[in-house]
């Protein structure tokens, strides 16, 4: 379903930050991506959620060779991917609930069900009281949970999360991990980048490690 073959990536004219990346993610699988800060975790995720293009190698997403996929097909592919950005990327002029509803609005859904669904998700991540709050008034952990709710609302085939538990306490951390597992049970492929190895204990998942832009497999499932 998602396949990287000899993928390399660089920013501009800089050095390669990813080298010879090879892996294959089966539909419905669960993966951790670990590695020290600066190892290239975020860069690898950017390739997965179609923000960046590789400088070499072959990426296949949902059966599409990304080197030959025309631009006009990118929006439809991107809608199949839910992303929790490391720095959230919430829109400041929208309330929490409107931020969560955004992916569905973009797709053209715009009825009360969308708002209802967004509200339920926010309640689930413990933000029942903050539905109408602007992102600027939320704490780091609260923003993170809004970002997660937005990433899952479209029932994506692939969920990519960049340090999704970095700003929450351990209890909320395991609650969010539980949400990801629920999504995974419904068939979503999950990839979570984290440098927090304590997360790995509770979840049965394959673990990939990045070090200096090279990938190794700590455990496969």
């Amino acid at each position: 379903m998602i396949r990287f073959e000899n993928v390399g990536m660089r920013y501009g004219m800089g050095p390669e930050v990813l080298r010879d990346i090879n892996f294959h993610l089966r539909p419905g699988s669960f993966h951790f991506l670990t590695g020290p800060s600066g190892a290239g975790k975020s860069s690898l995720l950017k390739l997965m959620y179609l923000m960046s293009r590789p400088s070499r190698g072959l990426i296949t997403m949902f059966g599409h060779n990304m080197a030959t996929t025309p631009r006009r097909k990118l929006p439809a592919l991107r809608r199949r991917i839910g992303v929790v950005f490391q720095d959230f990327h919430l829109l400041d002029h929208l309330s929490a609930i409107d931020n969560v509803a955004l992916p569905l609005r973009i797709t053209g859904f715009n009825d009360e069900k969308v708002v209802e669904h967004a509200g339920e998700l926010l309640k689930w991540v413990g933000l029942a009281e903050r539905l109408q709050a602007r992102p600027a008034t939320l704490s780091g952990g609260e923003k993170q949970r809004v970002a997660i709710a937005r990433a899952v609302i479209g029932r994506p085939s692939l969920l990519v999360a960049d340090e999704p538990t970095g700003n929450v306490d351990p209890a909320m951390g395991s609650r969010l991990m539980h949400l990801f597992q629920e999504m995974n049970k419904l068939g979503t492929t999950v990839v979570i980048a984290t440098h927090d190895v304590t997360l790995l204990k509770d979840v049965e998942a394959s673990v990939m490690a990045l070090e200096n832009g090279r990938l190794s497999f700590l455990s496969r499932r």
Binding site: Y49, L50, M51, R72, P75, A76, L77, R78, R79, I81, V83, H89, L91, L102, P103, I106, T107
Partner: peptide, 9 residues
């Protein structure tokens, strides 16, 4: 952001 969420041109 909209582009990454799958908004069309």
């Amino acid at each position: 952001l909209m582009t990454l969420l799958g908004a069309t041109h």
